[in-house]
Amino acid sequence: MQRTPATLVLENGSVYRGTAFGHIGEAAGEVVFNTSHTGYQEILTDPSYAGQMVVMTYPLIGNYGITPNDNESSKIWASAFIVREASNIYSNHEASGSLDDALKNAGVMGLAGIDTRKLVREIRQMGAMRGVISTVDQDEASLKAKALSIPEMSGQDLAGTVTTEKNYTLETPGARYHVAAFDYGIKTNILRLLQNAGCRVTVLRAKATTEEVLALNPDGVFLSNGPGDPAAVEYAIRTIRELAEYSRTSRPLPIFGICLGHQLLSLALGATTYKLKFGHHGSNHPVKNMQSKRIEITSQNHGFAVSMDSLPDTVEMTHLNLYDQTVEGIRHSELPCFSVQYHPEAAPGPHDSHYLFDEFTAMMDRAKN
């Protein structure tokens, strides 16, 4: 592994010096941390990380390599990857290459050898900050100026930058349902679990219209995860509001949202969102199901949340984050709409919340009768 000096400078002027791996050059983005012990490949290829540099809190990363079946999309979306130690060797019978090679091939920078504990503490205290990593510019003042020039995450519509270019359909043998799935940055395992639940899935561009959805005559609508500020995705909010109203005026059309999809559904139903200080990123977050009273250990990746105080009387909070008491799930009292902030598809993460896909198919069954 090549050892090239690299420097990370945050927008507040903090400096972290280490060595580069993967691509050599310069990278910029919002710096966030993830508390998962494993799953770095799924994290890197999650489109929800577009525009962000990911710090792993677990100290040794890369020791099981890269495996062909673990990608959550067709490319690495994180703008950079920051670790304490990047393993020089990997051991896994399914691995096809190293983390270093994967980053090189994708043109994505990695930074190793810094005190990630200190960096994570700083992010927790100060909040997620913009930063620049460079091997070509070692001037701290220059790098700070570059960091300050990066657009802030608030106000950015990134769903339109990660969505599919063309609509497409995933056929499922013996499918009982047809689901129209909006791709705001959809993960592969979400599509896999929808298919496992008996759904034929038509994946739609983020800007697909209400008319396009209704022309498919679907049994249900799925709203995917994705990056950026949900309030900035105004076209999606408008379309979701129209689809929810269709359930009121025409026929029941179940809607299920995950992560950004949860935030967009909440906005469409009349709630508001806000930016979290440093977000929720990891596979070990406890969430309380307010109906069953059971605690689910969940996988999370989001920098914005739905304001609890803004929920309309017709919208019930169904799940609660036990770390900071934020909204983790909602359900409409009159319309067949529900969503969760966390990732029940668990890629990476625990499987506690797979039942939500069954709830979606049960809602579609009721809508048919």
Rank of each mutant, 00 (worst) to 15 (best):
L243N: 01
H262V: 01
R251K: 14
I237D: 04
A271V: 13
I258W: 08
T239Q: 03
G257A: 09
E245H: 14
A231P: 00
T202H: 13
G220E: 01
I237P: 07
I237M: 02
F278Q: 14
L223K: 08
C199L: 13
A271Q: 09
P230K: 03
T209P: 04
I240M: 07
G261W: 05
P227I: 02
L269T: 10
T210A: 15
H262G: 00
F278D: 15
L276I: 09
K207A: 15
H280N: 13
A208P: 02
P218A: 08
R248G: 00
R251G: 00
L276S: 03
N225L: 12
T202D: 13
T273F: 09
A271P: 10
F256D: 00
L253I: 06
A208R: 09
L264F: 05
V233T: 15
L243I: 07
L267N: 01
V221N: 05
K275C: 03
D229S: 06
A215L: 05
V201M: 07
E212T: 12
S224Q: 08
F256V: 01
P252K: 05
V213P: 10
N225C: 12
D229A: 06
P230S: 08
A215I: 09
Q263G: 11
E234I: 11
P227W: 13
G261Y: 02
K207C: 14
L260T: 09
F222H: 08
N217A: 12
R205L: 09
L276D: 05
A268C: 09
F222S: 04
A231W: 02
S247C: 00
A232E: 00
A231D: 10
F222M: 12
N225E: 14
T273A: 05
G226P: 11
V233Y: 13
T272H: 13
G228T: 07
C259R: 04
A268S: 15
A244L: 09
Y235V: 04
V213Q: 05
L243T: 04
N284D: 15
R200Y: 01
